[in-house]
Design a protein around this nucleic acid. Structure first.
Length: 575
RNA sequence: UGUCCGAUGGUGUAAUUGGCAACACAUCUGAUUUUGGUUCAGAAGAGUCCAGGUUCGAACCCUGGUCGGACAGCCA
């Protein structure tokens, strides 16, 4: 387990470096010190199965599972499935897959709030019996009107003081299906004048004649989030219920309910809120992501441009890079916007260490090496990863005709252009030094081919004087005869605005980057890539990190996705 | 004329709880490099939202402001 130190390493008494705690860790350590909850730590990740997980959820996942790991605790996976109108099994499966892929294992089986419906109903009955909940017959508009506004107290419902017996009878009949959707609700009796809107007699049960993806038609009343979440935490003995900031105002209700249902001596969960992740050039709202999918603006939830976990996965992100990212962005309570560059940094950092180097030419330009024998071919030895010797070497075929990148040749090259130009020399990586002798063009003036000569004594690694010669540039290349054709998809950020969802007057879709996907066909890759497995990751030397697309790549028609380009200081100079 | 939460370089997070504001990303130099990658060395960039106060000493404590966010679903 690598414990990367990020922030100022505080010196502990022993003198070894210690990472400073985030505010949640501080709370937990304080609890541990006080032996609260028998010094047990149990967290949970509680998604509603109504969509795919995204990078924002990844932050929460890493936080919740990370906290438990750090303090020797457990983490539950719980599907918060109290609204059958929005939830589907498809999402349950994808969520499980994504959490696992990120590298986390939840405690026992996945849980479902719907498994607690009986208990929740019992607790609702208890509130009714103790006079803390009542049935309201009013229509939703009426109730909403009486609720007041944040700056104005609400007024009490005419049904607020119903007798317990009547409430009990009506609630039972609600449960038995005697009423239609919206005809009645169960409300907690708290305080219509509370400055906190959530305490103004919140609705805790509503009628919904709708089949549930798990409980089927057993129920036609469903608990609201507020009545389900805290109690589910309580049922599962969650000690620290970590959620995002928008639930802060719900906390008094969370605590109020627990106060009425809590049994002395049991583990009492505590809600802690942190600021959700915002990423520049990205949208995070499930609703908007769904819109992109539904309007076919992307190919699906796992489109490599999507910030979904499945999208990042297909793009070629590694779980480790996402975990690292979650670690370095930290956890706090202030609103934040994290620069996507930071995500890309942790991606490259990981890929640089693990991705084998490979040669691929995206926009091929043919070179004929005129003094290289027609029928000769050599297999040249080349390292797989200069960062990691243990990854060994491989052999690559070299011959008279090779492809180089179109960008690597310029007829009228500026001084700083370290690549091939007429009469200039360049090294072919792991091969020979070549010199450009002639430029062949078609009748329109397009460059179609280059004629070069090579220096036979300059072979890489041969130890000869010529092999040690310093030439300005080193190019990647692929032998024409041996190259495999491939499709390469170049992905760029989906939006060209830093905050696509942050414009009041404009729809976020107006900021979609029309160049976010470029499909290149006829790319030339080295023959060793023939058996590359779906999702395997490579560095296309001098270009970037690429992976075999897990959906569309076929053995006879390979498809690579560009995960992220290499940092490119040349393009900056070039501007 | 509400309640709650927040405010530290461009961005994000720290500051061992009152002791010279640090780390990462981004930016810019330079070195190394058979990847214009990596690595290494370095630079610049905040005096901690504002105004008072307490203190030998305040990013941290107190008072009063300012600005930003959340809350008016039978969504979660």
């Amino acid at each position: 387990m690598g414990t990367e130190n990020k922030n100022t390493p505080a010196r502990s008494a022993g003198g070894e470096e210690k990472k400073s705690l985030n505010f949640i860790e501080s709370i937990i350590e304080e609890d541990l010190k006080n032996n609260k909850n028998n010094s047990v730590v149990c967290t949970r990740f509680p998604p509603e199965p109504n969509g795919y997980l995204h990078i924002g959820h990844a932050k929460s996942i890493c936080l919740n599972f990370g906290l438990a790991q750090k303090y020797n605790g457990k983490t539950n996976l719980r599907f918060d499935d109290t609204n059958p109108e929005k939830e589907e099994v498809e999402y349950v499966e994808s969520i499980k897959e994504d959490v696992n892929w990120l590298g986390f294992n939840w405690e026992g089986e996945a849980r479902f709030t719907s498994d607690y419906f009986d208990q929740l109903y019992e607790w609702a009955l208890k509130l009714v019996n103790t006079g803390f909940a009542y049935i309201d017959d009013q229509a939703s508009e009426e109730i909403s009107k009486q609720k007041g506004t944040p700056t104005q107290a609400g007024i009490e419902s005419p049904y607020r003081n119903r007798l317990v017996e009547e409430n009990l009878d009506l609630f039972t009949r609600m449960k038995n299906g005697e009423f239609k959707n919206g005809e009645r609700v169960l409300r907690a009796k708290i305080d219509m004048a509370s400055p906190n809107m959530h305490m103004r007699d919140p609705i805790i049960y509503r009628i919904l004649h709708k089949e549930h993806h798990r409980s089927g038609n057993k129920w036609c009343i469903y608990p609201m989030y507020d009545f389900a979440h805290g109690q589910s935490d309580y049922i599962e003995s969650i000690t620290h219920s970590v959620c995002t900031l928008e639930f802060e105002v719900h906390r008094p209700l969370y605590d109020w309910l627990l106060n009425h249902l809590y049994t002395e001596g049991t583990i009492r969960p505590r809600q802690i809120e942190f600021a959700r992740l915002n990423l520049s050039y990205t949208i995070m709202s499930k609703r908007k992501l769904l819109e992109l999918v539904q309007k076919n603006l992307v190919s699906g939830w796992d489109d490599p441009r999507m910030p979904t976990i499945s999208g990042l996965r297909r793009r070629g992100f590694t779980p480790a890079s996402i975990r690292k990212f979650a670690d370095i962005i930290g956890v706090a309570k202030r609103d934040n916007v994290i620069d996507v560059a930071l995500l890309e940094h942790s991606l490259r950092d990981d890929l640089n260490k693990i991705a084998p180097r490979v040669m691929a030419v995206l926009n091929p330009l043919k070179i004929v090496i005129t003094n290289y024998p027609e029928d000769k071919e050599e297999w040249l030895k080349i390292e797989n990863n200069p960062e990691d010797e243990s990854m060994g070497t491989r052999e690559m075929p070299f011959s008279r005709e090779i492809f180089i990148e179109q960008d690597d040749f310029m007829e009228d090259a500026p001084k700083k252009f370290f690549r091939l130009a007429p009469d200039k020399e360049v090294r072919l990586k792991a091969a020979y030094i070549i010199k450009c002798e002639e430029v062949i063009k078609d009748d329109k003036g397009n460059i179609t081919e280059l004629r070069c000569t090579y220096d036979p004594d300059s072979k890489s690694g041969s130890g000869s004087e010529a092999s040690k010669r310093k030439v300005k540039g080193t190019l990647h290349w692929v032998s024409v005869k041996h190259a495999i054709n491939a499709e390469v998809r170049l992905y760029d950020r989906l939006f060209n605005d830093e905050d696509p969802a942050g414009h009041k007057e404009k729809d976020f879709k107006e900021f979609i980057n029309s160049d976010s996907l470029k499909v290149l066909n006829g790319c030339k890759i080295e023959p060793g890539l023939k058996d590359a497995k779906p999702e395997s990751k490579y560095q296309f030397q001098r270009l970037g990190y690429f992976c075999v697309d897990r959906r569309d790549s076929k053995p006879d028609n390979m498809v690579f996705n560009r995960t992220v380009p290499l940092r490119d200081s040349w393009s900056k100079i070039n501007k």
